[in-house]
Design a protein around this nucleic acid. Structure first.
Length: 332
DNA sequence: TACATTTGACCCCG
DNA sequence: CGGGGTCAAATGTA
């Protein structure tokens, strides 16, 4: 935890330093006092950079606040939409029958399951629930109206729960503000990965095993991966909370190494909501074994009749996803 | 028939 | 006691 504190602090300092540096550049520009449109443009860019740095810094701090536990936070991103509150029980392990009895007998058990929230935006008009296909098979086991939300929250668990003892669950909450956005909170890690991969490979043989989880679903090849990537980049929001273990940083693709590419500012995202993208959220990245992190990401998701998507980039990311490998899971 | 979803009830926690 | 999360019977679907 302390390590993470360091990490967090460094990131914060880094952002602030960067912001300061850009501010200086801006000042230099202003001192130059030229008024060509070119310079104005440059200034705007600099201002945006500064804002971005502030945003990041704030998001880091926000994360910190949210995670009262003082664990670390990966600073990657401007936080746009916080999961309102993943939930009060945060952490109680997804349970099934056995789990339940266990809980009854030992309520003190506080094992926290990894949690991360992903925001998925679907194109307007598409009624499909974002989470549709993220490479895993989910079975809905409940739905509940949540106070403060117009739309009910859906509860899903891994279909293979009984077979492999997979405790992964997810909650899907449609956003009030923007019905095209779904907040998907993943809880717990998939231990059924083998099964999943198997299934995936069946569906998608072209995809390498490692890519299966990301690309999931549709066998069709993507059209313009570049555009899609772009869209994805613009639409992707990732946020981590409660990062307790530094290891996590390496586990999450969206950490510093990729953040530059993947993350974007809220304004950008908002301005680009018509992104169409892959058929599925296809981002089941987070099989972390850490105890309590939340990664929030938002990806443009689409469900057009067409292709699937530019998951090529996911593949690319996949390469970075160390956790996408079994080794990752076995980490614990 | 087997599996998935729906939905009201139940349990736990704050 | 209320809210969130889960269970499990009833129901739906292929």
């Amino acid at each position: 935890m302390e390590k993470m504190g360091e990490w967090e602090q460094r990131s914060l300092v880094s952002e602030l330093t960067q912001g300061r540096e850009v501010a200086r550049q801006l000042q230099a520009h202003l001192n130059g006092a030229s008024s060509s449109s070119y310079d104005i443009e440059t200034r705007e860019v600099l201002v945006q950079k500064i804002e971005a740095s502030y945003e990041k810094a704030l998001s880091i701090l926000n994360c910190n606040v949210n995670t009262s536990s003082a664990s670390a936070v990966v600073p990657l991103t401007p936080v746009i939409r916080m999961p309102e509150s993943p939930n009060s029980r945060g952490g109680s392990p997804p349970s099934d029958d056995s789990d339940r009895s266990f809980r009854l007998s030992d309520a003190s058990k506080k094992r926290k399951a990894p949690r991360w929230t992903q925001e998925v935006r679907v194109t307007p008009g598409t009624a499909l629930e974002g989470p549709l296909d993220d490479g895993f098979s989910w079975r809905k086991y409940g739905q509940k109206d949540i106070l403060g939300y117009r739309f009910p929250r859906g509860y899903y668990r891994c279909t293979h729960r009984n077979i492999n003892g997979c405790l992964a669950t997810k909650q899907v909450q449609r956003s009030d503000d923007d019905p095209t956005i779904f907040d998907i909170t993943y809880v717990g890690t998939h231990t059924c990965r083998n099964v999943t991969s198997h299934l995936m490979s069946e569906k998608n043989q072209e995809q390498g095993p490692s890519a299966s989880s990301m690309a999931a679903v549709e066998p069709q090849s993507s059209s313009s991966s570049q555009d899609l990537l772009l869209n994805f980049q613009k639409g992707l929001k990732v946020k981590t909370q409660d990062l307790e273990d530094q290891t996590y940083a390496s586990l999450i693709p969206y950490t510093s190494s990729t953040s530059n590419v993947v993350f974007s500012w809220p304004s950008v995202i908002d301005n680009n909501r018509n992104f169409v993208s892959p058929a599925t959220s296809g981002t089941d990245f987070g099989f972390g074994t850490c105890d309590d992190q939340i990664i929030q990401a938002s990806a443009a998701a689409s469900v057009t009749s067409s292709p699937t998507v530019g998951l090529d980039h996911f593949h690319q990311l996949d390469g970075n996803f160390t956790f996408d490998n079994n080794g990752f899971f076995r980490h614990g």
